[in-house]
Design a protein around this nucleic acid. Structure first.
Length: 421
DNA sequence: TCTGGGGTCCTAGGACCC
DNA sequence: TCTGGGGTCCTAGGACCC
């Protein structure tokens, strides 16, 4: 659990203002202009360029509260376009993969590389930045350390100073950690930071030098790992394989208030369908279905929120079965006369399909059902999402989320291809 | 009028069994 | 009617991440 390795070389690469940088890629004239990208439903600001940060627009800021600042300063605003960001992300990762066989894709815009044993390290690190910029056109920041936590620290400092930082020797580590706020560390959230403050631990160096057992009591085993990692002992290893998901969730805020059970059913059917499709992509079967609904907590109306789970007799990835289960839960938690704002479906207790088939007594999805789903997925892959769907998903969907400023899918949809004159 | 979405890991406590 | 201890499994909730 805590055994650490000493001679690792972890490199963290992350894309600067990733979603904004993707938008700039297709509109180079935005290069000098502040840019922000909004969350689903055009709710909050989830990505900002440095120019937008300088205007005082915080991460997660409600869009409507900053509309004035945005208009006044000619900020370019985009709804999020996850199809495009996902595609650009793949290109970035493909470029990074050429630098080392040991790579972990940590998020849509971040990856860890191990450059253990590489000679001429500084040269390689510089090359990473240059190559991603040249091949994909996305600016990245790079940080190097003997552990993931220290690579994160290096990356954060380097981003401010605009250069790649290496924290491989204890002297540079101490210098960096002395002034590094403990709350900015990877793995230290608001709750833990407050507990640390109360014990007079304010910098990363102070956390590194604290008593390990004491920190474990305060922040569980994860806190203790952070302490070890700060000391240069690698406890959080690279995840080289992308594991299958243990939970799959699809949840959305409505574009308008929803009262009727029928509308909720349409949304829940859509979300269950999406979950099922993601599940089939990883060749899994799920046995649990959770549905939740709730009102708008920011609005001064009667509040209600509830959720329920149903356990299936055997695992399935057959969309109609999952929709049926989700409806069953929905009917149990639905209360009429309430103004709903959001609903979601989460499937869990997921295992690989092969494993289920070893179980002689459970009833599997039939070959006919599998064939049906296979055909459905194929159609939607070729002709776009929702080309073919269950009738329960409805047609009008006026509860759908808003995305009024979405850019075209330049790289994944033929009709959106850029035309060069 | 307008405030996102999708994950993971860890722990405490209850249920159950012998 | 009273009484012990140890183990496993599961779940809900907390905390954190991007």
């Amino acid at each position: 659990m805590l055994s650490g390795k000493k001679d690792e070389v972890m490199v963290l690469i992350d894309c600067n203002s990733f979603y904004c940088s993707c938008e700039r890629l297709f509109q180079p004239r935005l290069a000098q202009r502040p840019v922000v990208v909004l969350s689903n439903n055009d709710g909050c600001v989830v990505s900002r360029t440095n120019e937008a940060k300088a205007l005082g627009i915080p991460m997660g800021a409600p869009y409507h509260q900053y509309k004035d600042v945005i208009i006044k300063n000619n900020v370019a605003v985009f709804s999020s376009n996850y199809t495009m960001y996902g595609d650009i992300s793949q290109r970035v990762m493909n470029t990074l993969r050429q630098f080392s066989p040991e790579m972990e894709i940590y998020s849509i815009d971040e990856a860890f590389l191990s450059l253990k044993g590489f000679r001429n390290l500084s040269h390689h690190v510089e090359q990473i930045k240059t190559r991603v910029w040249r091949d994909v056109g996305i600016p990245v920041s790079v940080g190097v350390g003997p552990t993931k936590v220290l690579a994160k620290v290096a990356n954060k400092i380097g981003k401010k100073e605009g250069r790649a930082i290496q924290l491989l020797d204890s002297k540079s580590q101490s210098a960096a950690l002395k002034n590094f706020p403990v709350e900015d560390l990877w793995g230290v959230g608001r709750r833990s930071a407050n507990k640390l403050f109360m014990n007079n631990i304010k910098t990363a160096a102070q956390l590194r030098d604290a008593n390990e057992k004491f920190i474990q009591r305060l922040m569980t085993i994860q806190g203790r790992r952070i302490v070890r990692e700060l000391k240069g002992e690698s406890c959080i290893s690279l995840e080289l394989l992308t594991e299958n998901k243990k939970n799959i969730a699809t949840t959305r805020t409505f574009g308008r208030p929803v009262f009727r059970l029928e509308d909720l059913q349409e949304a829940v059917a859509c979300h269950a369908s999406t979950c099922a499709e993601k599940l089939r992509q990883q060749n899994g079967l799920a046995r649990k279905v959770l549905v939740f609904i709730h009102t708008n907590p920011h609005k001064n109306t009667p509040q209600y929120s509830n959720s329920g789970t149903i356990k299936l007799l055997s695992g399935t990835s057959y969309t109609p079965k999952l929709i049926k289960a989700a409806f069953h839960v929905l009917r149990q938690i639905y209360k009429p006369g309430i103004e709903y704002k959001k609903c979601g479906v989460i499937i869990s207790d997921i295992r690989p399909k092969e494993q289920n088939q070893l179980d002689f007594f459970s009833s599997h999805d039939s070959p006919k059902e599998d064939g049906f789903m296979g055909a459905l997925d194929k159609i939607n892959r070729w002709h776009g999402p929702w080309t073919a769907k269950m009738a329960a998903c409805g047609i009008h969907k006026d509860w759908k989320m808003l995305s009024q400023m979405r850019s075209p899918c330049r790289t994944t949809r033929w009709s959106d291809l850029l035309v060069v004159k």
